[in-house]
Each structure stands twice: as structure tokens, then as C-alpha cells.
């Protein structure tokens, strides 16, 4: 295995584009090292991105959004007060990944590129309308987060391409988001179901919403029907029931060691309701 430490994303992309065997990028490493240790994926070229300038930065963008470096670990994301105040759902999704120790290493970018439908940080990003900056040998492009995963363990990135930043839009006023997941234990599990809700209010009425579900389909899923169920409502019980029904209806899960189809479908609706209530109260100004 060759270990590379490029100093720019362009260099990293060129190393990857020129490699012939198995290539992996190293951001936090919490997936790559597990696969390496298990002998599941032993890369021929391992490209460590952490020496690239700016990869640990969280910066305000010109349009009032955020640019998050690809090596920012969960613990740094959680410690960023301004980001947490604006996008608590995005931050709490990331903070649910693994243990305190894993939080010291794991990154949004890695969680996204691992391609797991159960990735805890991805529904929050999708609900937030986040995008990523992709650098390739031929330049850069911007891609919506929901277009990155293409199947379990797979992404739409082309050979040689890598994510060089996560981009969150400006939050704006009277808005809130939340992420909830269901796991059998209280910590340390992979989501059996995950749900993120981001919404905006005018008074008591929801004017915009995005609902994303994790672990109920081959990729994290944006569910417009679930969002429509609550837009125009004050999140009354009827709206919540419609939201739950729409969330459950959007599920196309599998039976596996972590959960059943019936359970995932049912609990997706439960979580959608609970997450929507939290997002709503945050939009109302509740900081919890």
C-alpha cells in the first residue's frame, strides 16, 4: 500500500486519476481503517487529505451559508456554536456517528462518501439542502448532497474525483431542523431508521419543509410528499399523521440483522413526527 499526503485537492485528484489499483481517500479514517483492518479493502493507494490547507476549517460563505472542511471531525462540528445554532439538525446527525472517540476523527465527508444508506449525518444534510464541492483532475463542480450516494457503498463520484468541501446554504429566519434516528441501544449502533426534517415558518404556519429518511432505501431519500404533508399547516395532529403516513409510504427497506421491513416502515413515520416537532419548536426560537 502506498501512502500519499498531497497538499492540494488537485494533486489528490491527480494521484487518484493516475492510480490503477484500489484507491481510497483518508479523511477521518473511521471507515477506511476498519475495512483495512478486516482485510475487506486493502487499498493500493491511500491518499491522506488531512495535510491539505483548510480541511479543518468551518467558514461563513459570502451568501451567509457555511463551508465545512472535509477533515472537520464531529467533535469540532459540535463545538462550533454558530453553526450549531443555525443547523442543529445537521450537527446532531454528525454527533450521533459512533462514540466520543469516533467523533474525534469521523467527518461529514467520510460519512457521505462511505455510501451507507444508514449514514447518520446524511439525512440532515439532505434536508438542509446542502451541496458539496467536488474536485476532479479537470476542475470543480458543485453537486447536491442527495445526488452523491448512488447505492449501498457507492457514490456518483467519477474516478479521480473527490469532495473538497461541504456547503450549507444560508439558514434564514424562522427556520429549524432536527434529526432523529432509531437504534436498539442508546448509543454505538448504526441507524435502523433515521429521519431529518428542516422547515421554515411564517407565524405558526410551515411555509417550507424538507424531509429526508435514512436506512429505509438503498440511498438516503428526500421525501417531497412528507414535506407537502406539513407545508401550510401549523403541525397539528392531522398534519403529523399525514407526515407519518407519507414517510412510511416512502420506505422501501430491507430485512437485515439490524431491523425488519415492518419495523423500519412503521418507525420512519414515528421519527418523522418527532423530528418535525423538534424542528418546529426550534424554528419558533427554542434552542434545545
Amino acid at each position: 500500500m502506498r501512502y500519499h499526503t498531497p497538499s492540494t485537492f488537485r494533486d489528490a485528484a491527480q494521484i487518484a486519476a493516475g492510480a490503477s489499483g484500489v484507491t481510497r481517500f483518508l479523511a477521518g479514517g473511521t471507515d477506511v481503517l476498519v475495512q483495512l483492518r478486516a482485510g475487506a479493502v486493502i487499498p493500493d493507494d491511500l491518499i491522506d487529505l488531512k495535510k491539505i490547507a483548510g480541511v479543518y476549517d468551518i467558514a461563513r460563505t459570502g451568501d451567509g451559508g457555511w463551508r465545512i472542511g472535509i477533515a472537520v471531525p464531529g467533535i469540532a462540528l459540535g463545538a462550533h456554536e454558530a453553526l450549531r445554532a443555525e443547523w442543529p439538525g445537521v450537527v446532531e446527525g454528525m454527533e450521533l456517528v459512533g462514540s466520543t472517540q469516533v467523533q474525534g476523527r469521523a467527518t461529514l465527508t467520510g460519512n457521505l462518501c462511505n455510501g451507507s444508506p444508514a449514514a447518520d449525518s446524511v439525512p440532515g444534510l439532505v434536508a438542509a439542502g446542502a451541496s458539496v464541492e467536488v474536485t476532479g483532475p479537470d476542475g470543480q463542480r458543485t453537486v447536491a448532497v442527495q445526488d452523491i450516494p448512488s447505492g449501498p457503498g457507492k457514490t456518483s463520484l467519477k474516478p479521480g474525483e473527490l469532495i473538497s468541501a461541504i456547503l450549507l446554504p444560508a439558514r434564514g429566519d424562522h427556520a429549524g431542523d432536527a434529526y432523529l434516528r432509531f437504534i436498539p441501544r442508546s448509543e454505538m449502533d448504526i441507524a435502523v431508521v433515521g429521519c431529518a426534517v428542516s422547515l421554515r415558518l411564517d407565524g405558526d404556519t410551515v411555509t417550507e419543509a424538507r424531509v429526508a429518511l435514512g436506512a429505509v432505501a438503498p440511498v438516503v431519500k428526500l421525501v417531497p410528499a412528507a414535506a407537502q404533508a406539513i407545508v401550510g399547516t401549523a403541525l397539528d395532529d392531522a398534519a403529523l399523521d399525514k407526515l407519518a403516513a407519507a414517510a412510511s409510504a416512502a420506505c422501501a427497506p430491507i430485512d437485515d440483522k439490524r431491523g425488519t421491513i415492518a419495523f423500519r416502515t412503521e418507525v420512519a413515520g414515528v421519527l418523522a413526527k418527532r423530528a418535525a416537532k423538534i424542528a418546529y419548536s426550534r424554528a419558533k426560537g427554542d434552542r434545545a
Binding site: L33, R37, A38, S99, Q101
Partner: peptide
């Protein structure tokens, strides 16, 4: 465990708590 699930290998890396099984030696 070697997978970051048990914490028995916990160390501090520049002050941050990490599983040393999830860090490469060369890092």
C-alpha cells in the same frame, strides 16, 4: 475490537480523544 467499537485503545492525539485502532501509525 479493531473497529472503533470498544474504546480499549483510547488515546489522545493532539489532545483529541480517539481510538488508536482508527488512526494510522504514519498519521
Amino acid at each position: 475490537c479493531g473497529t472503533g467499537d470498544c474504546g480499549a485503545c483510547s488515546v489522545r492525539l493532539d489532545g483529541t480523544l480517539v481510538c488508536s485502532c482508527l488512526v494510522l501509525g504514519v498519521e
